[in-house]
Design a binder for these strands. Structure first.
Lengths: 230, 230
DNA sequence: GGAATAGTGTCTCTGAGACAGTATAGT
DNA sequence: ACTATACTGTCTCAGAGACACTATTCC
């Protein structure tokens, strides 16, 4: 019985995931999601948060949630291992340090990992776990205020929009996005202050904070545009 | 490592769940969800389908899907047991037979089980599992064609509507419901035939079949009416 | 005919999306 | 001035819901 954690963040407009380099067989030296065995006296949630902190130094601060269990008898060549997979979403923290047991932890672009010719091969069935985790995050962006977990404490609506654009892989209309976000009660609250424009100029953007400490349901949901046909 | 299955069906317009009477300690004689230990050589999905068939005689026919894992260290007084919970949805089959190991299996109304003063106490944390499973089913009704799994091979739109009304606990407008269902591509297909009216008379209703063998996503979703405020 | 259920038509409101236009910064 | 970004306004269309109306059955 193990837990594995898909930790997503946004860096330079790209969706990235925290990977560790395995220090043990099997898959020694390969990249994998952080995770490990559940201790007898802890809940699944506690195990996920603990393993994440131990192996990567990341504090998920309660923003961690289970999304699927994987139990194929052959998924681990050593023995039967059932894993409960978790999703955590954090702002860009700069560097991610290696964990207590000296494994390296680093951020890797999700697009490359999930493309037809992956940049890196992942251990076990972690490519499937990552795929499902990213899909869970995309859906969560539609129905909850989780997007604010990707950005810092104060942010502009452009930054919030870039979260959706990176996760969904499509551009969104700035005006329509603004209207929808401001129409959702308690999604964001204005601070009254403005941010300095970027190096390319432009009007200074208003700064907002998350409208609630906890995750809230968006009503109406901010629906992802559906593909035509099918 | 166990699996537990929430099997929902509709009988006389009420949502019911399959429960077994436990034949072993702990909770001997109490009611519980069907389920049991995972064998070393089977997937989680296989384990769920097997336990369901063994204990209740129900064949979920592939319509069975995991929705959450439960791993509180104290949820089973004997030992640490992590369970992966599954949701299955079946038409009213009449009686549910007891399983191979002679335990009784029966249908119990969900409303009574989840009310403040439950009609029956459930073993372990199965009241929470049931609660989550019912909520998963309610959401699945919004976004997928799963409602057709509650009814027989051919059905009227009134019968399909009563699935939603029972699961959501609210009445729906027949005209609007009809329009939305028929507007969803591949949700249902007409047979051209009509059903005999009920004992209270009324116009004969057209018969439909499920529009697809597999579960499909509804686009647009058939959204559950949201509560006002908050 | 009356009651009950099935099905159709219509009106209104909300939200999504496209897109034009205005405001304020850097160069 | 020009450009880039932030923000606002407007038009159109799709879907949801309320509800009136017609159709067909049983009593």
């Amino acid at each position: 019985m193990t837990v594995d954690v898909v930790v997503l963040t946004l860096r330079e407009g790209r969706l990235e995931v925290v990977l560790i380099e395995r220090g043990e067989t099997p898959y020694l030296g390969a990249y994998a999601l952080p995770g490990g065995f559940i201790r007898p006296d802890e809940t699944l949630d506690e195990a996920a948060a603990r393993e994440l902190a131990e192996e990567t130094g990341v504090d998920a601060a309660g923003h961690i949630e289970q999304f699927h269990a994987y139990g194929d008898p052959l998924r681990d060549p050593r023995m039967r291992v059932v894993t409960v997979a978790y999703l955590a979403i954090i702002p860009d923290l700069g560097a991610v340090k290696g964990g207590s047991d000296a494994r390296t932890a680093q951020l890797v672009g999700v697009d490359g990992l999930l493309s037809r010719r992956p940049t890196v091969e992942l251990a076990f069935d972690h490519d499937q776990v990552l795929r499902d985790g990213v899909e869970a995050a995309r859906t969560k962006l539609e129905t909850t205020s989780v997007a604010t977990s990707f950005v810092g404490r104060e942010f502009t609506l452009s930054q919030l929009r870039s979260v959706y654009e990176a996760a969904w892989g499509i551009p969104l209309d700035p005006g329509n996005f603004r209207r929808k976000v401001l129409a959702s009660p308690r999604f964001v609250t204005p601070t009254g202050r403005v941010a300095a424009p970027g190096p390319e100029g432009g009007k200074p953007a208003e700064l907002y904070r998350s409208g609630s400490r906890r995750l809230i349901a968006l009503d109406p949901p901010l629906r992802r545009p559906r593909r035509r046909g099918a």
